[in-house]
Design a protein around this nucleic acid. Structure first.
Length: 581
DNA sequence: CAGTGAGCGAGCTTCCGCTTGACTT
């Protein structure tokens, strides 16, 4: 549609030129440019073009916190380019991202252009949340003006961060060591690792004995299955894990003596159908977490590979093709056109049973601004296999994840039969009765599991897997209520409860995001900041605070408790929302 | 007279969030 739009104003301009469209990223400029056709010059600002210079505070505290902005290094050439194009345009379309920073980027550009360059020009704000032809056409048809309340909110955020960072950091130079830093985001991240370390130090391991049995059917002793202790004399153990924990060797010895002399009978068999849902398409943070779990990529490596896929890959002849949507996003939404395409693909490739109706996902992160789509493949038809040869090995692995997660997110639930069997053990020397429990699960219908299942966190490192045993599909031998079974093997081992795990990079990012701290564009950077300051160091894949980190965190908690609170950013965001209404 | 050293002042470090290249580590 936009292509066909005639330009009625062009005739009045002595130097007829193209109208100018401003976006943030060059890759986006290329795509939008294709949609809009040759009547438009689409130019990228490459992020913020103006800001607070890093040298000096540049905020006048005496004078209503007036900021002093200057042109960013490298933005001079971009500004010259834009000026040149604007001179010959009638209309300037501000198509920066539809969020607080995007609004500010557009406003700063107008400020940098100045009234002379803008004289006689019409300025239109256009917003789209996805880069599809229809979304762009609609945005251009329904234009508005800059939202100055949003710009004010962005400036408040920016000024607050400057004041906090540039006031508190020098305190650290004087009291701890020169060159140190503190800030609304990095200092909370540091504190999380320090608090966790304290929990670990304060942790008292508690002894327990794990009881694991193997039983066999009386009717056929080759049919064996495992069961764990569930209750003693009808009194249950931990409600969540369904296990009863024995506290000491004495209890364990009594239990072993009893169980070895007991008779076993199946008392209850409960079978029920369970369904599970696919996970939402990727956001920046969930992509970083999953790439860490499955590919062992750190956040930086993930973002580098994603950037390449986004910017475009040469697939045979012709222009490079952007293979994924924007990789810095907090949204789990998929464009309607994409969902339709994915649905057709699923029906064709896997069958109608695998596609129900379009699924919509809610973002779970606080302060999500949802300026973009979720991270998805730009076309489901470009399967990972079909383009593999054009990609680097990192890009290939990451694209595979993104494509599969996107497809799976629109597939039907998986269905399993879950069986829970209780076995009563009685007749031991102490006269106690024990309940053992065996569980099994059989996958009846794969649904989304045919394509992709999210990896699980390895919270504890290498417990023997039969103990962790919540496999998605582990069958149980057929058992009937009332039948007798025999003890085949009995194991009781001394164990100790474990302290909470240190943060991995992905866990830290997830925790920050859950608290609304940091943004998709900064998650990877936050981690490298606290590492560069040597506030934390890696122990394996986990972060351990250094002495310096602990000293700094404790000092800041003592003297700047507000800033060190995870709720600080949340309350800042609330107030910024009031500014932007 | 030349070399030494006390004392003083100036300059430097730093934030968060948006985005890509630019090159010298």
């Amino acid at each position: 549609m936009a292509n066909a739009k005639s330009k009625t104003t062009a005739a009045a301009n002595p130097m007829p030129g193209k109208d100018v469209v401003i976006v943030e990223s060059p890759a986006k400029a290329r795509t939008i440019g294709r949609f809009l056709g040759s009547d438009y010059d689409v130019i990228a600002t490459k992020g913020h073009m103006r800001g607070l210079a890093s040298k000096g505070m540049n905020v006048d505290i005496e004078n209503d916190f007036e900021p002093t902005y200057s042109l960013e290094r490298g933005s001079g050439v971009v500004l010259t380019e834009i000026k040149k194009k604007v001179r010959r345009a009638d209309i300037i379309y501000l198509a920066t991202d539809p969020d607080r920073e995007g609004e500010a980027i557009a406003w700063h550009l107008l400020e940098a252009l100045g009234p002379k360059a803008l004289a006689g020009k019409e300025v239109r704000r256009v917003v789209f949340h996805e880069i599809t032809r229809s979304a762009v056409d609609e945005a251009f048809a329904d234009h508005g003006v800059l939202d100055m309340d949003l710009v004010m909110a962005q400036q408040a955020r920016r000024i607050l961060d400057r004041l906090v960072g540039y006031t508190v950091s020098p305190v650290l130079w004087r009291t701890v060591r020169r060159g140190l830093s503190a800030g609304r985001v990095q200092s909370v991240a540091l504190r999380l690792t320090v608090d966790r370390e304290r929990e670990i130090e304060a942790f008292n391991p508690v002894e327990y004995w794990s009881v694991l049995t193997r039983l066999a059917k009386s009717a056929d002793s080759s049919l064996k299955f495992r069961a764990t202790l569930h209750a003693i004399d009808g009194k249950g153990g931990d409600a969540k894990s369904g296990r009863y924990l024995v506290n000491n060797q004495e209890e364990s010895a009594k239990l072993v003596a009893d169980l070895e002399a007991s008779a076993y009978q199946v008392t209850k068999v409960v079978k029920r159908e369970t369904k599970s849902r696919p996970t939402a398409p990727f956001t920046t943070s969930s992509l970083q977490q999953e790439a860490a779990r499955r590919l062992r990529f750190n956040a930086e490596r993930t973002m580098r590979a994603a950037q390449g896929l986004y910017e475009g890959i040469q697939l045979g002849s012709g222009d490079p093709v952007g293979l994924i949507t924007y990789m810095r996003t907090d949204s789990t939404n998929l464009a309607t056109t994409a969902v339709a395409e994915i649905g057709d693909f699923i029906k064709n490739k896997y069958g109608a049973d695998y596609f129900g109706r379009p699924r919509v996902y809610r973002t779970r992160s606080k302060n999500a601004q949802e300026a973009h789509e979720a991270i998805r493949a730009t076309s489901v038809m470009r399967t990972p296999e079909s383009i593999a040869t054009h990609l680097s090995s990192d890009q290939r692995s990451l694209y595979d994840l993104i494509w599969k997660r996107m497809v799976a997110s629109q597939m039907t639930d998986s269905v399993s039969d879950a069986t829970t069997v209780d076995i009563e053990a009685t007749g031991g020397p102490s006269g106690t009765s024990y309940t053992l429990r065996a569980t099994g699960s059989v996958l009846k219908f794969q649904g989304f599991r045919a394509v992709y299942v999210e990896a699980r966190d390895t919270i504890t490192e290498s417990d023997d897997s039969e103990e962790n045993g919540s496999d998605t599909s582990r069958s149980l031998v057929p058992l009937d209520e009332g039948e007798t079974v025999n003890l085949d093997e009995l194991k009781s081992e001394q164990k100790f409860t474990r302290p909470p795990a240190r943060y991995s990079e992905a866990m830290l990012i997830r925790t920050l995001e859950e608290n609304g701290i940091g943004r998709p564009s900064t998650f990877a950077g936050i981690v490298s900041t606290i590492e560069r300051r040597v506030y934390v160091e890696r122990e394996g894949t986990r972060f351990k605070p250094t002495m310096l980190g602990i000293v700094v965190s404790d000092y800041l908690v003592q003297w700047f408790p507000d800033i060190m609170d995870t709720g600080f950013t949340a309350s800042m965001e609330e107030k910024l929302d009031e500014v932007s209404r």
